[in-house]
Simulated scan of single mutants.
Amino acid sequence: MRTLGNILWFIFGGMFGGLAWIFAGCIWCITIVGIPFGRQFFKMARLSFMPFGTSVIG
């Protein structure tokens, strides 16, 4: 069920959400002050691509 949920999520909007998080992470990583925020945005992108059965830790 987890795999089916991830596939459906990716097709119906997860791809666009994940790409938006990656874009925001790249923008934030341009400055040294924004690098910690950018790293968190990349974690959110991973969660946005496949949210079922995953967790974000520190």
Rank of each mutant, 00 (worst) to 15 (best):
I32Y: 06
T31F: 11
L19Y: 14
G5K: 15
G53R: 02
K43E: 04
R39D: 10
S48P: 01
V33K: 07
M50V: 08
G17F: 00
L4P: 00
R46T: 09
F42D: 00
G13M: 01
T54H: 11
K43W: 04
C29M: 09
N6G: 02
W21C: 07
F49A: 05
F49G: 01
M50L: 12
N6R: 03
F12E: 03
M50R: 07
G17R: 01
V56F: 08
F16C: 14
P36T: 07
M1L: 11
S48A: 14
I35L: 06
I30P: 02
M1K: 09
R46C: 12
W21Y: 11
W21I: 01
N6D: 03
L8C: 11
I11Q: 04
F42K: 00
I22G: 00
K43A: 07
W28L: 15
I32N: 05
C26G: 11
F49R: 00
F16H: 11
C26I: 12
F10E: 04
G18S: 05
T3E: 15
M1H: 09
V56L: 14
I22Q: 01
F52Y: 10
R39E: 13
I32L: 09
T54E: 10
R39K: 15
M44I: 11
F16N: 12
R39V: 15
T54K: 08
P36M: 07
F23M: 12
I35K: 04
P51V: 00
P36F: 07
G5D: 13
V33A: 10
L19F: 15
M50A: 11
S55T: 09
A45M: 02
G13P: 02
G13K: 02
I30N: 02
N6S: 04
R39G: 10
P51H: 01
I30Y: 03
F49V: 03
M44G: 05
Q40E: 15
M1D: 10
M1A: 12
G58R: 14
M44R: 12
I27T: 14
A20N: 09
G58I: 12
L8R: 09
F37D: 07
I22H: 00
G13W: 02
P36N: 06
I27A: 14
L47W: 13
P51L: 01
G53N: 03
M15A: 15
G13N: 01
L47C: 10
L47H: 10
G25P: 00
A24L: 13
F37V: 14
L19G: 12
I32V: 12
I35E: 06
C26L: 13
I30M: 05
T3C: 14
G14A: 02
F10H: 06
M15W: 14
G53D: 01
T3A: 15
I32W: 08
I35S: 06
G5W: 14
W21T: 04
I22N: 02
I27V: 15
F16A: 15
C26F: 13
M50I: 09
G13S: 01
